[in-house]
Design a protein around this nucleic acid. Structure first.
Lengths: 241, 241
DNA sequence: AAGTGGTCTAGACCACACA
DNA sequence: GTGTGGTCTAGACCACTTT
């Protein structure tokens, strides 16, 4: 097995399995080989495989289904998606994906403030996307999304229809970036011209501001976004352990 | 071993060990018996002990020190605590526990709205606690905390000095309730008289409202609280998988 | 040197999913 | 029924801390 031989077997195996997920050798939603097979292939005991898999399950990369197999987890977009809306209006039931409109896509110098969020890997340029999200035709959230350039250069040429209402699947399928976690920071802001106009609220009306770093398996920042939510309709829900 | 025999051994052992911590049979900072001893005492293998201990380590109750022993962790509750404050001011470094003042404790009929949050286990009466949290002498958050009565009847008689700045350790040590997870819901509110007065903001100024259900191992709701945070100083941070 | 947790093996049996 | 993950045992050896 590859990896630093000073590390325990299960840790090296974990890295090996993680890279298969990251490289999409094993793709989202499919099952990975059974434990006994991974054990014999890698010349370790089943218990060692279990320990490696345990870790990836904890990290949210894999998912065990007893009796069935171990699967590459599809990032649950539900959570991060529906977090943004007021559930009480969802009495209609079912899983309604809110409408999503791309307002603009621009290439610009990455602002210093955003560079900070990307850390040492920050690029000089960025693709800035303005997106409005609506629910039952009512605008709820205006998002500014910053993507690293040139990695996301192709984002310009994509049809809005192809992009669809969710970005994480696009990152995964077109750019090979698998979202494993996000870090949100929530505060109050006051609507500027752009925000007021698109959300249909008054200038300087309070809004909820959610700043999100979206992270890949290896801890790299995939995107950074700032979302402005309407005070009267916005709810952010989260469960913590 | 006690506990529902349908549960796996390691799960029952975990509960047993957890209760020794909760009851302070094993007190914070001291080491628990070695693994081989726990194994023979309970008639299980070392591996089973390890699995139970693993879980408690993950839950933050115990701490392993290789070559030395396994210790009862002194609760820090950093996560749930520092979530509420604006980190940028924390440049002083170190781990500052914000000041906490109990403003009032009352016994009243549980409001219907709060009853909903407790679900079918809701009691008719509740202990309502008003608490102000300050950081560097500045009031940041005003909390209304609802505790079930009579389970938390003793909360009345406790000295504020004994309670300290953190409630979760009190729930654990005095009432045997282990907090395992919380569910937060965040929205914008507008300061009423009480909130405005205690936070030192204007009437109807926007505030961040965090509504939290605090849950025990078995899914029971331990408390429900609504916190009003000052718009200018409040930040809520969270990392999601 | 003695004692503790950390890694790893080999193998048995159970619980569940699926065809 | 077959195959998968889940629990559990018994025991070897290693790495680290403490005396």
């Amino acid at each position: 097995m590859r990896g630093d031989p000073r590390l325990p077997l299960y840790a090296r195996l974990r890295d090996e399995l993680a890279s298969k997920v990251a490289s999409q050798t094993w793709s989202a939603g499919t099952s990975i080989p059974p434990e006994h097979e991974l054990a014999s292939e890698n010349g370790v005991s089943v218990h060692t495989v279990r320990k490696a898999v345990d870790q990836l399950v904890t990290e949210g990369l894999l998912e065990r289904r007893q009796g069935s197999g171990t699967y590459v987890r599809r990032p649950s977009f539900d959570g991060s998606l529906f977090r943004w809306f007021n559930f009480e209006d969802a009495s209609a039931g079912g899983r309604i994906v809110p409408e999503s409109r791309l307002l603009s896509r621009e290439l610009l110098e990455m602002p210093a403030e955003v560079k900070d969020k990307f850390g040492p890997d920050a690029t000089d340029k960025t693709v800035r996307v303005l997106r409005l999200r609506l629910w039952s035709k009512v605008p709820i959230v205006l998002e500014e999304i910053f993507l690293p350039y040139p990695r996301y250069a192709d984002f310009f040429d994509m049809n809005e229809a192809d992009i669809g209402p969710l970005l994480y699947p696009v990152y995964e399928q077109h750019f090979g970036d698998f979202v494993t976690s996000v870090e949100d920071e929530i505060s109050i802001g006051f609507a500027n011209d752009t925000v007021a106009q698109h959300l249909g609220v008054g200038l300087n009306d309070p809004t909820i501001v959610v700043e999100r770093s979206t992270l890949a398996v290896d801890g790299r920042t995939i995107e950074w976004r700032r979302a402005h939510g309407r005070a009267d309709r916005f709810r952010y829900k989260v469960s913590l352990k």
